[in-house]
Design a protein around this nucleic acid. Structure first.
Lengths: 334, 334
DNA sequence: GATTCGCACCAAAACGTTTTGGAGTTATCC
DNA sequence: GGATAACTCCAAAACGTTTTGGTGCGAATC
């Protein structure tokens, strides 16, 4: 079912058929009606490849899922992906998804392909790194992209700025108000922007509370439940263990919960634990976990919308959208 | 950066360049080396649109996420999606993802577009319906697809058959062994294959245990945590409430957990609760939830692989892959 | 010395659209 | 009544590949 066959059946030129369907004004209403009707009836749909080739637009957004472990499953990403999907759909765009481990050769290859073969019109980045080669690569190729968080770069691109630092400061203040003096921090590799921001917030929180920073209370691990578990075990095995543990995200905090339970430590009374993201799991632990609720779904939608607007040249590349998450205090911090 | 420019720079015809890169044997090794080197250096990558148009292949798999609520987030799907992504990647394919509410106009439109505009080479279906118009539509258009579960249809297509019925039977047996006589079932709309199978397993389980089926103990809701919560509240408010509740999936079972907690009912002793899927959350509840562990990640990978093989004509359309999940008994059922 | 063969390359067609730059017809204006 | 405008429609080019059906040339074969 090509436009040619449709045109033949209607005794029209393919030009007219194309323009009728695209809503141009230089085709008679009566003709348009006939064309649309026939198209519907014969189930005609323009070939995407052909249209893409000619228009030089793909109407597709790209997203590369950073999969730490092969069987990874951070619920944060279901929500994030759904947000991207929904917004893309409502903008008449599709979403092309790939997955690869961060900083792998595979990842590089995938970005290269997406960009250089014009697979997509723009790319959504998250888990931005401090010195992110993706940012360099994409700006160098003048390829439209938006990101969740900005690293250390001269490049200008639209991004969402979550007030991570402020919220971590607040978390520490909250714990210190509850009398905690030794507050542990399960962080991740310093190459990630979230580590930079959240750790900075942690430090500022300590300072403001007049607490001394003890490097022994800090761990840097991958962003998985299991790594959180292992890190927490280490912290709890210290000669002077912390009385509170902050996870850089909910997943690591949940790992800490598991470690504490395993050792029969009462969470909330003997040990305070808090996370960050606001994933559903934090409601089910006993006691429920204090966390910072990010509007993940809205963030994703906003990112997708920003990307579309960037592609259409409707927003400047230096657009910044601030997001203020909210502290959700639950029983895990007493 | 087109093949033409590359050819010009190399003083070769575009034919030779194309064939050199595609590994044809009718190009001298020395020439191929030069071509590959130049391509790498100049960052040439074939235009996807052009290639697609000519080859009549997209090297893309399609998947439409069934989003019940706009902000939905069933962790089952992160795992499922990651599986699809990973397998697609390892087959040199990409994954095109869209989302829409089941049985909506939007959904129809999306399937129609994907198929008729040759957006993808094949489609992965899950949450198969008993009389699934998608199955009819896709077979009618001779469009390659695979599914998780098969409905009531004459059509032949590769699918994965999870032994849902047997496992639900086992679940009921397990509960009846623990002395439960009134076992509730939070199911979903009978139009879904999983409802059909799992409910059948529930019934057979009752029968085998010599228990009478009481329709009052059955609810049909959407597959969300909140609907599970509401259904459980209803069940617990009955004059003769059940002593055990089976959720058709973990999400609804988690809703039941919430309802029980809210009413101060001790789970595991006063009320048994079990789910199905094996999502991570079930480990965090107190007590941890009895569930049926499906190898979701592997199922997704297998589906993707089957689809690629179907497209390549390497497997017949009537391939069936059976999957045997495992019962995971935890404290929530005593 | 003519024929055949294998090797390395290539021109041109095809894929199915959108867009450009008109062309033909009828209505409108002075 | 001739020029202008408005309205419909269209032929052909272009998008960047892959594929088809070659060509030219030197070596091997008879």
């Amino acid at each position: 079912m090509t436009i040619r066959e449709l045109a033949k059946k209607l005794n029209l030129s393919i030009t007219t058929v194309s323009r009728a369907l695209d809503g141009y004004s230089d085709v008679a209403e009566e003709t348009r009606r006939r064309v649309i009707e026939a198209a519907q009836e014969m189930g005609y749909e323009p070939s995407f490849a052909a249209r893409q080739l000619r228009r030089k637009r793909t109407d597709t957004l790209g997203y590369i899922l950073p999969t730490s472990s092969p069987r990874f499953s951070d619920p944060f990403y279901t929500t994030f992906l759904t947000g991207l999907c929904d917004e893309a759909a409502s903008q008449n765009m599709d979403l092309l998804v790939t997955s690869s481990p961060p900083e792998s050769e595979e990842e590089k290859e995938q970005y290269r392909r997406m960009v250089q073969s014009h697979r997509v019109d723009g790319i959504i980045l998250n888990r931005t790194r401090i010195n992110d080669w993706r940012v360099e690569f994409l700006t160098e190729h003048k390829f439209p992209f938006v990101a969740l968080g900005k690293g250390k770069t001269e490049a200008a691109f639209p991004y969402i700025d979550v007030a991570d630092e402020a919220l971590f400061e607040e978390l520490v203040a909250h714990l210190s108000n509850r009398g905690h003096q030794r507050i542990g921090f399960i962080g991740t590799t310093p190459s990630l922007v979230i580590q930079q921001d959240r750790f900075a917030g942690y430090l500022r929180g300590l300072e403001r509370a007049g607490l001394e920073f003890d490097p022994a209370l800090v761990r840097q691990v991958r962003l998985t439940e299991n790594d959180g578990y292992l890190a927490a075990r280490e912290l709890l095995a210290l000669p002077e263990p912390p009385t509170a543990i902050l996870g850089i995200n909910d997943l690591t905090a949940l790992g800490a919960v598991r470690a504490a339970k395993e050792q029969g430590i009462y969470i909330g009374t003997e040990l305070a634990i808090a996370g960050y993201d606001g994933i559903k799991e934090t409601e089910y632990t006993v006691p429920p976990l204090t966390t910072v609720l990010q509007p993940t779904y809205e963030i994703a939608r906003t990112l997708a919308r920003m990307l579309v607007e960037l592609i259409d040249g409707q927003i400047p590349p230096d657009t910044v959208v601030p997001v203020q998450p909210t502290l959700v205090i639950r029983a895990s911090t007493g």
